[in-house]
Simulated assay, not measured.
Amino acid sequence: MKRHESLAPLSREHHGALILARLLQKGAPAYKGLPADPAGKARYALQFYENELTQHFIYEEKMVPVLKDINPKLDDMLREMSEEHVILRELFSQLNNPKDLSAQLDKLGKALEKHVRKEEREIFPLIQDSCDPHLLSKISTLFHEQ
């Protein structure tokens, strides 16, 4: 399914998140220009989180009240999305005080990959199927609000 233009910016941002997710997982291939050691991966992950994902999560969460009560399944999926954001924020914060850094990176990488794929394969298509063009255009205005 082609991504609606209102969701396309978020969808494009998911590409970088998926690369990060794979980089953090055990047995990940080397990515040119990206760190290969656990400490470097943790620093990169925290920087990516601060520079990219923090705002990305905020934009996605701004959609929740706009899309409320359109479709019960969508309500459930958006609630799950917000709950996963809380979990991911906690997993990123744990990188500051690692006990077993490799295991923490792997757990974070798997959780981030699962989350992004769920949004791309389930939540975004359901938004597109459930919303009329007016509501979809309203979503894109959320990304321009501060």
Rank of each mutant, 00 (worst) to 15 (best):
D69E: 14
G109F: 04
G27W: 11
L101W: 11
D37T: 03
D106Q: 12
E83V: 04
K99Q: 14
I70V: 07
V66L: 13
L135C: 15
K2D: 08
Q146V: 03
K110I: 12
Y49M: 04
L10F: 04
H15D: 13
P98M: 05
K32T: 06
P65N: 00
Q94S: 14
E145H: 03
A103H: 10
L53T: 01
L46T: 00
L91M: 15
S130Q: 02
T54F: 09
E52M: 12
D37Y: 03
Q146A: 03
L67G: 02
E145C: 01
V86F: 09
K26A: 15
P65D: 02
D69S: 02
N71K: 04
L53V: 03
L34C: 09
A45T: 01
H15P: 05
T141W: 11
A36L: 14
D129F: 05
P9A: 04
D69I: 02
I19N: 10
E122K: 09
K73H: 13
P72C: 02
A36V: 09
N96W: 13
L10C: 05
I87T: 15
M1H: 13
Q128E: 06
L18W: 03
K138M: 10
Q25M: 15
K32I: 10
E5T: 10
P98Q: 08
E84H: 15
V116G: 04
M1S: 11
M1K: 07
A42H: 03
I123A: 00
K68G: 02
L7Q: 00
D132S: 13
L91I: 08
E84S: 15
G33S: 05
T54D: 14
Y31Q: 10
K26T: 15
P35M: 00
A17G: 01
E90Q: 11
H85D: 04
Q55K: 07
L136P: 07
L135Q: 15
L78I: 00
Y44F: 14
I127Y: 02
R79T: 08
K62M: 05
A39H: 12
S93Y: 13
E90R: 11
